[in-house]
Amino acid sequence: MTHLLAALLSLGAFALLAGVVLAVAQRVFHIEGDPMVDKIDSMLPQTQCGQCGYPGCKPYANAVASGAAEVNHCVPGGERVMLQIADLMGVEPKAVEEEAAAPMLAFVREDECIGCTLCIKACPVDAIVGAPKQYHTVIVDQCTGCMLCVEPCPVDCIDMLVKPELLEHWAWPLPDTRRAAVGHERRGHHAGHA
């Protein structure tokens, strides 16, 4: 009986101590704001495209951090971003339902543009320049390809073009472990040119 009592008391005392330490630690190391939101936000591609159903990446990050949204709604981020977020949140990964399209760029056909500035207002990253009654132009280096400018255009003069692949940005693929393809490719090429 005394043994049981001793065990209970000592464990109880330990639990109390641990509780106090934790409580103190929470006060001392308290962090303002939710660092989770910023962490998630930094993983998102910042296209601000709204395909997740939230008006921008930060709102979606907020929703994920508060548990209001699933981790798999970022379409342009794809599987990689989903896995990162799931890992951070400590939840099971979920397949991203929509397949991301190839990276796109908006392009204004300037001779058709009436200078209404509606696309400029729609662009979430201020990547379209122009003044009322003047042609508008997309700054190629800043366009995230979110397509939010296409809908508002009253004369449908905005095209979404596939982002051109740059020689400088070409990256080596993983090796083809079969390797026997060396011969096939050459032969195929000759057939094509003959």
Binding site: P45, Q46, T47, K58, V125, Q142
Partner: peptide
């Protein structure tokens, strides 16, 4: 690019 986009968005 994402960082720059985020700054412009903010």
């Amino acid at each position: 690019f994402a960082e720059a986009s985020r700054q412009r968005f903010d």
